[in-house]
């Protein structure tokens, strides 16, 4: 929707945005040659803009609809009368700002304690329900090709069970890794290496994808969309 974009000095803000983004992209890339002030400028702008943008979004999409509207404009929050209960989380939120005043910074411990308590209470049973038990059940698989279990599935299940047991053996530190435990832990290292290799391969893919994204922006949006158009291409 380029026509709808507002204009500054007769230039579309979209066009200005593409040129600024191009400058910042090249400024960040310049670090690959060596550290320099242009890179640092881009880095500081990124940190500042991210923080500023976050504050604006939180104010407009959280503070206004969850605190200000229920208190002062209940009709906009689909309420018949003000909802005074939101004063409590509002006050707890304000108490976080006491960190700026050393004399009263102890007040910030209350909301921190509330958040920590709530998060721990929610996370501990959830972790058991999500990670421990279902993953444990998922390793209890048939490893013999009997009945409707085909040989390929049985082999796959066998590898899974061996991998889990041997990796756990590697992390068992209450006995010397000798004899059967030593063999199991060595096999465990092999499985760990395979996992690290898969992680590394995926990390390479992710980083290359980010580079592709920037190059696509530079070529399609900036070079073809702006530079070529500027020179009548």
């Amino acid at each position: 929707m380029p026509d709808a974009a507002p204009q500054i000095f007769g230039l579309s803000t979209e066009v200005i945005g593409v040129w600024i983004a191009t400058f910042l992209t090249l400024a960040i890339f310049s670090f690959l040659y060596r550290d320099n002030p242009v890179y640092k400028l881009a880095e500081h702008i990124f940190v500042g803009v991210s923080a500023g943008y976050g504050v604006v979004i939180v104010y407009h999409e959280a503070v206004i609809p969850l605190l200000i509207n229920p208190l002062f404009r209940p009709e906009l929050a689909d309420l018949e009368s003000p909802n005074y209960i939101v004063i409590i989380p509002g006050l707890l939120g304000l108490m976080m700002f006491s960190r700026f005043f050393p004399r009263y910074d102890w007040l910030s411990r209350w909301p921190i304690a509330f958040v920590m308590g709530l998060s721990s209470g929610l996370a501990i049973p959830a972790t058991v329900q999500t990670n421990l038990l279902p993953q444990l059940y998922a390793t209890l698989n048939p490893i013999l090709p009997l009945g409707d279990i085909d040989p390929w599935t049985a082999t796959s299940n066998f590898l899974l069970v061996v991998g889990v047991i041997c990796t756990l053996a590697y992390f068992y530190f209450s006995r010397e890794h000798a004899g059967a435990l030593g063999v199991a832990s060595r096999i465990g290292i092999f499985f760990l290496m395979v996992a690290f290799g898969a992680s590394f391969g995926n990390t390479v893919m992710a980083r290359v994808s980010l580079l592709i994204g920037r190059f696509q922006f530079l070529y399609y949006d900036w070079w073809q969309g702006q530079v070529m158009r500027l020179f009548g291409g």
Binding site: Q135, A138, S199
Partner: peptide, 17 residues
């Protein structure tokens, strides 16, 4: 998800979560 995260989440596929 991003490729960096993929190996962390494959176990949840295997457990049908």
């Amino acid at each position: 998800i991003t490729a960096v995260m993929a190996t962390d989440f494959y176990p949840y596929l295997q457990s049908d979560q």
